[in-house]
Amino acid sequence: MTSPRTADSLDEPEFLDRLRDRDPDALGDVCRAYLGQVFRAARGAGLDPGGAEDVTQATFATFIESAPRFEGRSSVRTWLFGILYRKLAEARRVTARHEADDIDRVFESRFDEDGAWIRPPRTPEHETEASELRDALAGCMEHVPHRQRRVFALREVEGFSASEVCKILGLTTTNVGVMLHRARNRLRECLESKGFGADARS
């Protein structure tokens, strides 16, 4: 048994050769490094613990099955999350249609015709309301459409770059930007409706 590897060493050419040969120790290193992240991402995408467990198992099964075909054009982590998000999309039968979103109209309504804020945002209070804010955000997250939620989770929670998110979800940079913007504004508006971040008209 080899000692646990650092995330960077999981993308070294020698290690990728072992992965392609489906070396159990190499596959085990990937499992140790990323299984928790994949499971939490599935939870973050809105699955209950049982559903997240199923999709995590399916993701690693596909990962092991497809390891010989991995070309190394993206990192192992990006590849793994690509498998995960295809599983999530299959599970939800997400369509690739691009549609107008009510949140765009809400966002526009926050500005006057010169593009200045009509009702300015309030600087968040860091010290107070932390647990309340967390509970409120969890509730608001339920109202974010799945595709927007995935982009938000990959960028904000998992810390993937925009280009990595594009690879994982098969979207253009512009689409990723639009969906991130919509998810953030939907959450912001929802929190404001619950009394967070609202400010008196100035």
Binding site: R43, W117, P121, R134, L191
Partner: peptide
């Protein structure tokens, strides 16, 4: 512009709280 700074701070807070939610 303090309003735009507040908006950016709100988005950062949303990201920070979301990260803490899933860990």
């Amino acid at each position: 512009c303090r309003h735009c700074r507040s908006y950016a701070a709100q988005l950062r807070t949303i990201g920070r709280v979301a990260r803490s939610m899933y860990r």
